[in-house]
């Protein structure tokens, strides 16, 4: 939801730089659905879905960390071209991205032992 909100807020600014973003983004189906699939009991009761969960959480963590770096790049560039609106946007959205990364990291710590050792 945060990510969708970020795209929505970036869309009008993006036009100034010739970047065409969907102002009404649908939820990113790939990651969400993969996590959902991972925890789905329809996959049967075996260890494979548990490992899928770890893989998905790892992927979310890596992805969010990358976006976090992107926000830093955007903020640096915005300062360079004195685009205060874009700078403010980056400063406002970046903490959400960090929270997403931290969430994924905490979930990994919480589950790794049980899922890997049992």
């Amino acid at each position: 939801m945060w990510s969708q909100d970020h795209v929505r807020r970036l869309a009008p600014v993006g036009q100034r730089y010739g970047v065409d973003l969907d102002p009404e983004p649908a939820g990113d189906p790939t990651l969400l659905e993969r996590v959902r699939d991972g925890v789905s009991d329809h996959l049967g009761r075996r260890s494979a879905p548990a490992l899928d969960l770890l893989r998905d959480l790892r992927s979310i963590y890596v992805h969010a960390s990358g976006v976090s770096v992107d926000w830093e790049l955007v903020a640096q560039a915005a300062q360079g071209v004195k685009d205060h609106e874009l700078l403010q946007l980056a400063q406002s959205c970046h903490p959400d991205t960090l929270r997403q990364a931290r969430w994924a990291n905490s979930m990994l710590k919480e589950h790794a032992t049980q899922l890997l050792v049992s």
């Binding site: 925890v39 009761r45 075996r46 260890s47 548990a50 049980q114 899922l115 049992s118």
Partner: peptide, 8 residues
């Protein structure tokens, strides 16, 4: 319950 479900 989830861990019981996945058998661990």
């Amino acid at each position: 319950m989830r861990y019981a479900e996945d058998g661990s």
